[in-house]
Write a protein that binds this DNA or RNA. Structure first.
Lengths: 153, 153
DNA sequence: ACTTAATAGTAAAGCATCAAACTAATTTTT
DNA sequence: AAAAATTAGTTTGATGCTTTACTATTAAGT
């Protein structure tokens, strides 16, 4: 069956399957790296750390939005990162509902070790993928999220 | 910052974020539908059912491959679907390591109710997305999985 | 000002995932 | 034919996600 003759429905089924596969492969790639180097960190915790390496001192809700996670999951993950002494919470003086998350020195130091692996992973992923193709994908995915968001109202 | 000036690394970060968002939105869309109609089925169980609606009587490993799930997760999900009397296991006479999964009548009947929702969801998702764009995305995602798979060797 | 609504975070329970260790059956090597 | 390797499935324990309900704080509506 050629590509042109496939229905959009069939293509979408395959599309979602491929999304899941890439997601899983990315996760497993980094976790293998972590195991190999005895890093006690899950993929999900890394997502939070990577977010904080870009911007320190934001509140949990903001971290949730950026990492696309539930705020309840965030409580759990921040608890774990706190136990590992990689981050700490500080109540926001301006709005006492917020808890601002800051990196400890240990948490900051970790970036030097881990960021190269992320860069390396992205290089692997992007082999034979052009910036144009990435742009198309980002736009399509953005449209889809927006379509689903609108439909949920 | 324009699209052309963004680094591939930055684009990949956004790309993975968008993947996660679409994945989550698809899941929540269907779960909302299920709640609304009092369907006692999780998204993950549906993935297994949808696989079987296409092809009945395959073994657990094949279902795992198609749904991109761990075989341990599959044991768990098939147990749950069995408890709901939607599927049953049958030992493969040809190779007694295999357990073939079959739909019950109740499991088959369910397709009439649920498949329209999936079709509807895909229509929503694909609004303003062309088959060409879908094709590009599938190809890019396939490349990425393959790149990561090769790197894992 | 006072009531109501919205927002940030936590807690608990149920579900799904994953890794590792295990059993059983089959295939490959020797 | 016997030993070793592979494959399918299960079990267990740890981790993460999600829903619901809850508390505390702030903002909005009257």
């Amino acid at each position: 069956m050629t590509k042109a003759s496939r229905s959009k429905q069939e293509m979408t089924t395959e599309f979602t399957r491929e999304i899941t596969k890439v997601n899983l492969a990315l996760k497993q790639y980094l976790q293998a790296k972590f195991r190999l180097h005895d890093i006690d960190l899950t993929f999900e915790m890394l997502q939070v750390m990577a977010c904080l390496w870009k911007q320190d001192g934001i509140n949990q809700q903001e971290v949730s939005n950026i990492t696309v996670k539930d705020k309840a999951s965030m409580t759990y993950l921040i608890d774990n990162l706190t136990a590992r002494k990689l981050v700490y919470r500080l109540e926001d003086e301006k709005d006492r509902r917020n808890k601002l998350i800051f990196l400890t020195e240990k948490g900051k130091d970790m970036e030097q070790q881990i960021q190269p692996w992320i860069t390396e992973m992205y290089a692997v992923v992007n082999k034979n993928v052009t910036a144009d193709q990435l742009g198309v994908c980002i736009r399509v995915l953005g449209n889809m999220s927006e379509n689903l968001r609108k439909a949920a109202d």
